[in-house]
Nucleic acid binder design. Structure first.
Length: 633
DNA sequence: CCCCCCCC
């Protein structure tokens, strides 16, 4: 990679408002921003990047938190080469005209790289003046990119003389239009809706003051009244989705009455002007750092028929059932599973309210665990699980009675066989084939050891505390790096008989003998049995990894792996294996003592593997802090 | 600005 391949001048073009370009840039610095100033409710980190185009650097580049994982898993680091996919310019300070770039989407072109060229920081004067409206339209449309770059920095003064007015967000986000149109756009009414310039939901933030989204209402609550110290009130809320993301919106009182009848579930609308505030994770599991409040000048216009066909119906952020064990009580999450059994309707008496409530329990399963989910009132009455459907819950509440439970709330969306996710068929096939007869750990049985929230330990602690030496297995979470994978013994030829699982003997004549079934087969199946070493700063440990976890780690099926092995495609296998060792993960381990003749040895089996979800960790920490006693000052 | 959502 040479400096010619970086998009020289791209940073200034972006700062000029010409943000369409998908520039190749180098990350020359990464800093975290204090979460207190950014997003106090979620505690989500935000990264600030210094980017280089080979000639210049610009350091006020905020990375959208949706991209944080790239840094957390170290694929994006200092000197990485990236391709900007979606960037926006925002004004930080209207007074001074200081601007920043928001990077919403990027692609890592090259992770490990040397510093390219000897770039110097763009002069502040260029940055401040770059967005002036009189120059912007020219820059964006007429002057070729190379000319802009070549003109630097000699034209700096000219630009400054040309426009004393400092750029504002309004200037910037108003599309090129005649003056009269622009003026009208600032007056009240539907003129605020700019159908030509649609903002993606995942880029909305409180510091942006002019935007229009095009979104589908995926759900809507009833109007509910409340009474608090400030007096009575009413509200409803709805969830909005587009192809980029989702956000919850709420309307109170006057706006509640005005907007409630305007919005219909399933329909697409243009929405402009509403307030944005940090999300409260206690009640909102949507994949967005913010939530929206409709206010007095919010504009809503229904999309013409057929206009919004490209907007998705709903977005799910599923977590595996086993992961519910690690979630804070009363938090909400999205879950998908197969209905293994359904209870009859029950009527119970509310303790304090002395009112009757109707409920129905369902037992929900996926490949690794089962959990009881309780439905209430109408949701309970209408539910029919007799055909063992795949059910997705969006925004179901985690309970902690006798282990972990799920409890549907009014805003919970229940979807049968949702077509939006491949999990529907995956679970269907799994359940019909083997899931229906499998005995899985039940998170809602407090006595089941497997359901206890696995504690985080270092590898040294596991040994020091003698974990796995007891009568019952211990379950432990470890944050570690895969350091060795025994690739030569990663897969074995398994007996094709359902539920056998035994290794077959290759008779080298096209037949395979299973000693357990005492049968000869003409085929076999590849199966994973990985022996691997994981390491953290305190030590290392050999563990066994089977089917699902091995697939999750290697990203290919045992069948694919086995075929590469047969075809002696070693370079592909090396690639797959090396990729799996790239970054830290959370390994959930079952530690259990094994007796081999006289020798007692603790065996470690990986029961679940997940990426380190830094944002979630921060959220959970906040949840825990919230549940603590208030501190006296 | 709500944030209740129930029982063992």
């Amino acid at each position: 990679m040479t400096s010619q391949q970086l998009a020289t001048g791209a940073l200034l073009r972006y700062l000029h408002g010409n943000t369409e370009e998908k520039a190749i840039l180098q990350v020359v610095g990464i800093k975290t921003i204090d979460s207190k100033t950014d997003d106090p409710s979620t505690g989500t980190k935000r990264y600030r990047l210094m980017l280089s185009d080979g000639k210049s650097t610009f350091s006020s580049c905020m990375l959208g938190t949706q991209m944080n994982h790239l840094i957390d898993n170290r694929s994006l680091k200092e000197n990485s080469i990236i391709r900007i996919q979606r960037v926006m310019m925002n004004t930080i300070d209207k007074q001074s005209g200081r601007v920043m770039l928001m990077i919403y989407e990027l692609e890592v072109v090259e992770s490990d790289c040397e510093r390219i060229g000897d770039p110097v920081a763009l002069p502040l004067s260029d940055i401040i003046n770059s967005g002036s409206s009189s120059n912007r339209s020219e820059t964006a449309s007429n002057i070729p990119a190379s000319a802009t770059t070549a003109a630097l920095p000699s034209t700096t003064n000219v630009i400054r003389q040309g426009s004393k007015a400092l750029p504002t967000l309004d200037d910037r986000n108003t599309p090129k239009k005649t003056t009269s149109e622009s003026t009208r756009a600032t007056s009240k009414g539907n003129n605020a809706i700019d159908k030509e310039r649609i903002t993606n939901i995942d880029t909305l933030n409180p510091y942006m003051n002019k935007w229009t989204i095009k979104a589908r209402v995926s759900s809507k609550t009833q109007i509910r009244t409340y009474e608090n110290a400030r007096g009575p009130g009413k509200l409803f809320s709805c969830d909005l989705v587009d192809q980029s993301g989702e956000i919850r919106a709420t309307a109170f009182n006057v706006e509640c009455d005005k907007i409630y009848p305007l919005l219909e579930v399933g329909k697409v609308y243009y929405i402009a002007r509403a307030s944005l505030k940090p999300v409260n994770r206690q009640y909102n599991a949507l994949n967005n750092d913010y939530e929206m409040t409709f206010n007095y000048d919010t504009c809503i216009e229904a999309c013409d028929a057929g206009e919004g066909d490209n907007i998705p119906q709903i977005q799910f952020n599923f977590i595996p059932i086993s992961e519910v064990a690690n979630r804070a009580a009363n938090s909400v999450c999205d879950i998908i599973g197969v209905v293994k059994s359904t209870s009859d309707m029950q009527t119970i008496m509310g303790k304090t309210s002395q009112k009757e409530f109707h409920k129905r329990d369902i037992l929900l399963v996926d490949e690794n665990a089962s959990i009881t989910a309780t439905l209430w009132a109408k949701q309970a009455e209408e539910f029919d699980g007799s055909s063992h459907p795949v059910i997705a819950f969006k925004g179901i509440k985690v309970g902690d009675y006798n282990g972990r439970t799920l409890s549907s709330v009014n805003s919970t969306l229940i979807c049968q066989d949702p077509p939006e996710t491949s999990r529907t068929t995956e679970l269907r096939v799994w359940f019909d084939r083997e899931g229906k007869t499998m005995d899985l750990p039940d998170l809602s049985k407090g006595s089941d050891v497997a359901n206890r929230q696995a504690l985080f330990k270092t590898l040294a602690q596991i040994t020091a505390e003698g974990l796995g030496l007891g009568d019952k297995p211990d379950y432990i979470n470890v944050k570690a790096l895969l350091t060795i994978i025994k690739k030569d013994s990663a897969v074995y030829m398994m007996c094709p008989e359902r539920g056998c699982g035994k290794k077959v003997v290759d008779e080298n004549n096209g037949t395979y003998r299973c000693e357990k079934c005492n049968k000869i087969y003409t085929n076999f199946e590849w199966a994973y049995m990985l022996s691997a070493e994981i390491s953290d700063v305190t030590g290392s440990q050999w563990i066994n990894i089977f089917r699902h976890e091995a697939e999750a780690l290697l990203g290919i099926s045992a069948d694919e792996f086995g075929n590469y092995r047969m075809n002696q495609n070693e370079s592909i296998i090396d690639n797959v294996v090396n990729k799996a060792m790239k970054h830290e993960r959370i390994f959930k381990l079952r530690a259990k003592v094994d007796q081999f003749n006289e020798e007692r040895k603790v065996r470690f089996t990986c029961t679940h593997v997940s990426d380190v979800d830094w944002a979630f960790n921060a959220r959970r920490l906040i949840d825990e802090i919230k549940q603590m006693e208030p501190m006296s000052l």
